[in-house]
């Protein structure tokens, strides 16, 4: 096939940044991360069912610095995907579909994601142990 110079449609970099583009790709990225997280959850649940050494190994994995980093990533992704997913469901119901409302709900989701993730880790670290 002959390769000819053909006109391309405008790509991402020609657009001025807006919060919607970042929220959109982060929703997809967090969804993929959470799929990995779901498999990690299945692994933990199986270890809990097996008990003994299996659970001890799983618990040690999760308590290690790398395990904690993974758990933090999963929790951040979970809170973000949950809140932004609610935003998507509200759009599906026809609510908040004006451009200023979409920007505003985007910032609300961003701030709440940070606040709720911090609250979860505060409860897990301080309240639990």
């Amino acid at each position: 096939m002959a390769t000819r110079e053909r006109p391309l449609s405008p790509h991402l970099q020609v657009y001025r940044w807006q919060i919607t583009m970042t929220m959109s790709i982060l929703h997809r990225a967090s969804g993929v991360i959470l799929t990995v997280g779901a498999f990690a959850f299945a692994w933990w649940l199986m270890a809990l069912a097996e008990g003994g050494d299996s659970y001890a190994r799983a618990a040690a994995c999760l308590a290690s610095p790398f395990g904690k980093l993974l758990l933090f990533g999963f929790s951040l992704s979970l809170v973000y995907h949950l809140l932004n997913g609610i935003r998507h469901l509200l759009w599906d119901a026809g609510w908040g579909y004006e451009i200023p409302e979409i920007y505003r709900s985007g910032w609300v989701v961003s701030v709440l994601t940070v606040a709720l993730t911090a609250a979860i880790w505060f409860a897990a670290m301080g309240g639990g142990a």
Partner: peptide
């Protein structure tokens, strides 16, 4: 998604309550 909106906050509560718990 709607089912998970209801279940995930509850699950987070359960998992946080299990931090530091023995088997």
């Amino acid at each position: 998604a709607i089912a998970l909106v209801l279940l995930v906050p509850w699950l987070i509560g359960v998992l946080v309550s299990l931090v530091g718990a023995d088997i």
